[in-house]
Amino acid sequence: MPEASTRPIVVVDDVHQSFGEVEVLKGVSFTVAKGGVVCIIGPSGSGKSTLLRCINGLVPIQRGSIRVASFDVHALRTDKEKIALRKEVSMVFQQYNLFPHKTALQNVMMAPIHVLREKPDEVRARAIALLTKVGLAAKQDAYPGELSGGQQQRVAIARSLAMRPEVMLFDEVTAALDPETVKEVLNTIRGLAQEGMTCILVTHEMRFAREIADEVHFTDGGRIVESAPPAELFDHPKVDRTRAFLSQVL
């Protein structure tokens, strides 16, 4: 992707974040090009999920800067400003977090209708198209409680896509799924990446990260320990800590 590397859409620079006394992020920097796919790997508690939450403004940062498209995320104060950002950056969660009182189709349609104020007919058509894309056209009237974990997660991805975001954040989206359904969700994400969606993934699926990512960041203890294209990072890690981690998980 030659044009992908020209203009970074996400710039994270020296981000510090702490919950009370606990410093979760201790100076994290990286960039993501438009259309790029970045995977963040690392042990639990290394601040991966917090990093994603900082990028869409769910968690405030104490130092450093985050720039996404035209937004200075670290400087957003009012709800209105954060809402403008979140129209461009959508997040998919580990526990799906679908709205249990709405059907799959309603889940997908809600935000475009009420947040973007688009016409219900158009949204409906787009939502059905998105559910078809994630392979769940037949389940559009099912409630989340009637769907399997993998199906719920695919609805959640469709729900995020319905907002037509510039950037998608995936927070360990397959961690709560059983091994068989992981595949259907990963296929969905792979499709998105191939279409040129900018994606930042926090994942424990090393093989998937290797296949899909343009760049992989290994984090530990609130810092990025090593960053490299996947082939390099997985096959020839330069840092001992990375090597130790990979030897455990691969």
């Binding site: 869409n56 769910l58 709800d79 209105k80 954060k82 809402i83 403008a84 979140r86 129209k87 959508s90 997040m91 969660f93 526990q95 977090n97 679908l98 709205f99 249990p100 009182h101 809600m110 935000a111 009420h114 947040v115 729900r159 995020s160 907002m163």
Partner: peptide
């Protein structure tokens, strides 16, 4: 997590309360 999901879909607080939290 329901509040978080709503926030990440750019719902404002009032919409989140009325459309997502209260019906549940």
């Amino acid at each position: 997590t329901q509040w978080e999901a709503a926030a990440s879909l750019a719902f404002n607080r009032r919409q989140t309360q009325w459309m997502i939290i209260f019906p549940q």
